[in-house]
Simulated assay, not measured.
Amino acid sequence: MTAGLFVYGAGGFGKEVMDIARRQNAASGRWTELCFVDDVRPEPTRYGVRLFPFESREIQDQLDGATFVIALGEPSSREKLGKRLSEAGAELATVIDTSALISGSALLQGGSVVAPLCSISSDARLGLHVCVNTMSIVGHDVHVGDYTVISSMVNIGGSCVIGNGSYIGMGALIKEGVRIGSNVIIGMGSVVYTDVPDDVIVVGNPARVARPNTDRKVFK
């Protein structure tokens, strides 16, 4: 498994990330084997590939040669596993669908996932373990913080700043130049015209603060 890719999380989103990795690997031949990492599922294979818990001998023996990407949709879970990978000294992969449009001036840090038909525009910056899901647009000069998840069909206007560990729900629209804090949840279909502070949930059109994001859980 030298130069293999381990997709950490073998749930529904894990299967989507595995599909992206398969397309990327078919085009680039970057990885010798694709595998899942999952600390809960007991089965030895999943979705046509081998599956291992993180503490297994098979993974620990390959930490120097393999790369990892997290496939969980919950930002707080992405942060937890991201710190675990960092402490283990694991190398991070960047998994990008072959249909995505990535500007040559954009910067994607390790662990990023970019799904089909996305656009990452000029001088955009994605932090560690950021996910941009299907058909989303990240405008020019947008900065997205670590562990943040941008769901499908989101449009983020130019020069926006999004903090760490936030979640932008399906179909949300973010006006250019808006600043969104850390640990924020933007409800699906929301239209955000003004800045959003840390640690809140906002919904609606125009988006308004609904309540504090005290438990940092998107999926309940």
Rank of each mutant, 00 (worst) to 15 (best):
C35H: 12
I137F: 15
S121D: 14
Q60C: 05
M1Q: 11
A21C: 11
G177V: 07
T148Q: 10
L63C: 02
V191S: 12
T194G: 03
Q24M: 04
G163W: 08
Q109N: 11
A207Y: 15
L85V: 00
S152M: 08
R30Q: 06
D146A: 15
H129K: 02
Q109Y: 13
P212W: 03
D61R: 13
R84S: 11
E16F: 00
V202C: 10
F52C: 06
G139N: 05
T2S: 14
C160Q: 14
G169I: 08
T214L: 15
G204D: 04
K15S: 06
Q62R: 15
V17E: 04
V191T: 12
D199G: 09
I137P: 04
G157T: 09
Y167T: 00
S76I: 00
T45D: 04
D195E: 10
V202I: 14
V130M: 10
G9V: 01
P116N: 01
D141G: 01
D38C: 08
I185G: 10
R125L: 08
L126E: 04
S56P: 11
R211P: 07
V132P: 14
E79P: 07
G127H: 12
V191N: 07
K80Q: 12
A106G: 04
S166G: 04
M18G: 06
R211N: 04
P75I: 00
E79S: 12
V144W: 04
A207F: 13
G189S: 03
L63Y: 02
L92I: 00
A210I: 03
K80Y: 12
F6C: 06
C35D: 05
G12N: 07
S151Y: 15
T45A: 05
L92P: 01
N25G: 04
Y8P: 08
E55C: 07
A27L: 09
A93E: 03
E33G: 13
S28N: 03
A26K: 01
C118M: 06
P53E: 15
E91L: 09
R22L: 07
P44D: 05
